[in-house]
């Protein structure tokens, strides 16, 4: 924990320096109405998140799938933004985005997103919802799969650094479960994402799809 904090401090300083340099460069351009430093900066950044993650932060399916952020525990959002900054989680677009957020804004941004309650993005096939509900509530003891509800909560709302699954975009959940160990926990120190490794590995594609379909319908 102490080591992690020291790393965080180093990154924070580097971030502050690059952010300051960028801010200087930005003021020489002007024009874009969405570019605000100082007053309105938080609102402008929130709007920026919603450009890709849906205007209600309910998630969006573009060429790539953008996850739902609305109602996500702020602890999870803060941890993931840091994971992108520290390359514990690798995604070229989100790495840029995470480095472009002033360090002091991350907490407020996460709190704003947590307070949102948009309806689910939708679009999942209905057929496998029943199977998904069953796995979510009871797990698959024979396959060494614990009940999702044990950590994510019976209502799938998550808590602290454990994500909300309720209303998550169907295709995103499938992708997350399918690529878990390639995309998460890539830092030198183990992080919380290690817990999901064996579970994601042991689920079949059909089971992943069923869980994704079920949670995508939850409000």
């Amino acid at each position: 924990m102490g080591a992690e904090r020291k790393i965080m401090k180093g990154i924070g300083l580097r971030l502050a320096l690059t952010t300051a340099a960028f801010a200087l460069a930005a003021t020489t351009q002007g024009y874009g109405a969405a570019r605000r430093t100082g007053g309105g900066a938080l609102e402008a950044k929130l709007e920026y998140c919603k450009t890709c993650h849906g205007l209600g932060a309910e998630g969006y399916r573009g060429y790539y799938v953008m996850p739902r952020l609305a109602g996500q525990p702020s602890g999870y959002i803060v941890n993931q933004l840091r994971a992108f900054q520290e390359k514990r989680r690798v995604n070229p677009i989100m790495s840029n985005v995470a480095h472009g957020i002033p360090p002091g804004m991350i907490g407020a941004l996460a709190a704003s997103l947590q307070s949102m309650n948009s309806p689910p993005f939708g679009g999942a096939p209905n057929a496998s919802i029943a199977l998904g509900r069953e796995i979510f509530a009871t797990g698959l003891p024979d396959a060494n799969i614990p009940a999702c509800s044990a950590c994510h909560g019976p209502d799938a709302k998550g808590q602290n650094a454990i994500p909300r699954l309720a209303g998550q975009v169907y295709w995103y959940t499938i992708k997350a479960l399918s690529n878990w160990s390639q995309e998460r926990g890539l830092g030198k120190t183990k992080d919380l994402s290690a817990i999901m490794g064996p579970t994601a590995h042991n689920l079949t594609p059909t089971q992943k799809s069923a869980i994704a379909a079920y949670v995508s319908t939850l409000r």
Partner: peptide, 11 residues
């Protein structure tokens, strides 16, 4: 990112 310009590639 610092100017809140989204990456077009995402969609």
């Amino acid at each position: 990112a610092v100017d809140n310009v989204a990456a077009c590639i995402a969609c």
